[in-house]
């Protein structure tokens, strides 16, 4: 590991100032220290924010939930209010990593974790994300875990989080603190597609730090499911995952909110898929139609071609489950 200067932030202002001056923020450290040992990341200064007062989860005046950026993945998954009212979030968290890692990993850090693309991790390889302009060998190399939606010819890496997929389906907003004050944005605004600049992954400004995630009030009368498909049954990243929050109105789908992991460079959501389902009676034909819309621009790179039919089958299985629709015989 390269040498670095370490400072512990005593308050949020000191943390945002340090980050504005080029320091890298460390909290749980489970991803950052892994990357620093491999010298994929080599920050010259670390600012430790773990002593800041961002450890609480509490209801907002509007009935939503404010999750402090330093709440650990295990505390959030076990939170009784989350288990009861936002179960898709608990399920997504419990599907990720291991007991030890979830005890350390934080809410803010989980959102900002880096891709597990093999080429990003291997400093002997070119990678446009790690070293802008150096090229991408994933497109023509091993790309079993890579994106089929939202990628560019510069980068086909996926975002690895499970938690963020559930949060995207729940319309979560991120609260961000910078020198200019506080602002809030959805996850669609937090993350950026790779385009020609895959090294710029978020819209956070230099001195901005995530302070909380805000969930709107719990969806009423909705079924919430998180389904994750992976290469082994525990401690593996998603090949495809689906977070579904679906409410029925009699025999028809009243509201469908669907987010996907493993498919793109950010937790993926497509409003057209949801609009195709809403107001309709559930059926396999309808679910096929929704899958067609989701995958209309999907592009495999060879080893990850299987993700296209896998995404279709996983989405259909989840939609059958949340609408209690039998599979055709």
């Amino acid at each position: 590991m390269r040498p670095f200067d370490y400072m512990r932030a005593e308050d949020l202002q000191a943390a945002t100032e340090a980050k504005g001056n080029g320091a890298t923020v460390i909290a749980g450290g489970t991803n950052l220290l892994d990357l620093m040992k491999l010298e994929v990341m080599a920050p010259e200064r670390l600012v430790d924010i773990t002593r800041l007062d961002l450890h609480n989860t509490e209801r907002t005046s509007g009935g939503g939930l404010r999750i402090g950026a330093l709440v650990t993945n295990s505390d959030l998954a076990a939170n009784p209010d989350v288990r009861r009212n936002w179960p898709v979030l608990s399920r997504a968290l419990l599907a990720g990593a291991t007991g030890q890692l979830r005890n350390k990993a934080t809410t803010g850090g989980n959102l900002l974790q880096r891709t597990r693309c093999y080429y990003f991790y291997d400093t002997a390889m070119p990678c446009n994300k790690r070293e802008p302009g150096s090229g991408c060998h994933a497109r023509t190399g091993f790309n079993r875990i890579h994106a089929i939606l939202g990628a560019s010819d510069k980068c086909i890496a996926t975002h690895p989080s499970d938690m963020a997929v559930a949060m995207r389906a729940l319309d979560a907003e991120v609260e961000v603190q910078g020198s200019g004050g506080t602002r809030r944005m959805g996850l669609d605004a937090l993350y950026r597609l790779p385009g020609d600049t895959p090294h710029i992954e978020t819209s956070l400004a230099e001195g901005e730090i995530i302070t909380a995630v805000i969930l709107p009030p719990p969806p009423t009368a909705a079924t919430q499911v998180y389904r994750k498909v992976r290469d082994r049954s525990s401690y593996a990243f998603a090949l495809v995952s689906v977070a579904a929050v679906v409410a029925m109105d009699g025999a028809r789908i009243r509201e469908a909110r669907l987010a996907f992991g493993g498919l793109g460079p950010m937790p993926w959501r497509d409003g057209e898929v949801e609009r195709a389902l809403e107001g309709q009676e559930p059926s396999d034909a309808l679910f096929d139609c929704a899958s067609d819309i989701l995958l209309r621009d999907a592009q495999g790179q060879g080893s990850n071609d299987f993700k296209i039919p896998l995404a279709r089958r996983t989405l259909k299985a989840v939609l059958r489950e949340v609408t209690r629709t039998e599979a055709p015989a």
């Binding site: 460390i26 450290g29 220290l33 007991g99 030890q100 890692l101 005890n103």
Partner: peptide
């Protein structure tokens, strides 16, 4: 009180 991987954290933290 919580189990963690001691390899993935810094002593100074």
């Amino acid at each position: 009180g919580r189990r963690i991987n001691s390899c993935l954290t810094l002593a100074v933290m």
